[in-house]
């Protein structure tokens, strides 16, 4: 008997006397009608609690804000699907600071390790827990680019913010590689006190964009 057959038969035999399970009660909150301004306020509060830096801007101010957040980076990487309009101030067309990661033209891990920052968009954000979800679509890129550089600048369109986790899951394609980010890398391993900054990006700047 193969290991699989044996384990499945052990389970079947273990469950011989098991009662039929009760139906699942789903009485928890699955929707909310929080106005946009409060949603933004809640998300900002949660992200700042995690020691992320947060800007809230209108779309026309996005390029200037990006330039400001990236001004200390000697180099930064963007996924190939990022809107070129966003970069007009941070990286004029001939900028040597800008590195684009694209299928067929990927940066090596070593190159990423020598890149100061990364700029991505995001798929959906959950205000109540301060969580931003990246799903690897072209304006977010493959997982390595938002992981190896030490500084992550992440754009959050206001239209992608929901209040509750149950409102966010229908917006996720679960078969894509997903990364849920709630603040910069942190640890509670020493005396259970939270300290920001271990292996992931130690600096997280979030730019919430109205009109996007």
């Amino acid at each position: 008997m193969s290991a699989k057959e044996e384990i499945l038969s052990r389970i079947t035999s273990a469950l011989r006397d098991a009662p039929a399970p009760e139906p699942i009660p789903r009485e928890y909150r699955v929707s909310s009608d929080m106005p946009e301004a409060e949603l933004i306020e809640l998300l900002v509060d949660r992200l700042e609690d995690y020691k992320a830096h947060v800007d809230v801007v209108d779309l026309p101010h996005l390029p200037a804000t990006l330039a400001e957040r990236l001004k200390d980076a000697t180099s930064f990487v963007v996924p190939h699907g990022i809107d070129a309009e966003w970069l007009v101030e941070a990286a004029p067309t001939d900028s040597a600071r800008l590195r684009t990661d694209a299928p067929g033209a990927v940066l090596s891990v070593t190159e990423l390790d020598h890149t100061d920052a990364v700029l991505t968009s995001s798929a959906v954000s959950i205000a109540e827990s301060g969580t931003i979800v990246l799903d690897g679509t072209p304006n977010q890129g493959r997982r390595a680019i938002s992981l190896v550089p030490d500084h992550h600048v992440c754009v959050v369109p206001v239209s992608s913010i929901v209040r509750l986790l149950p409102e966010a899951l229908p917006r996720m394609d679960i078969t894509r590689p997903l990364t849920w980010i709630s603040g910069p890398s942190a640890t509670s391993d020493i005396e259970l006190e939270r300290v920001e900054g271990v292996h992931g990006p130690r600096q997280l700047d979030v730019i919430i964009v109205k009109g996007l």
């Binding site: 493959r142 997982r143 894509r176 590689p177 849920w180 259970l192 939270r194």
Partner: peptide, 25 residues
């Protein structure tokens, strides 16, 4: 889980993967 374990609203990182994704991971 995050609220029960580290007492956080959400843990800093959660990764989800489904088999192999070409060009990523």
């Amino acid at each position: 889980l995050p609220r029960s374990s580290t007492g956080e609203r959400m843990n800093p990182y959660t990764s989800l993967w489904t088999g192999v994704t070409e060009g990523d991971g």
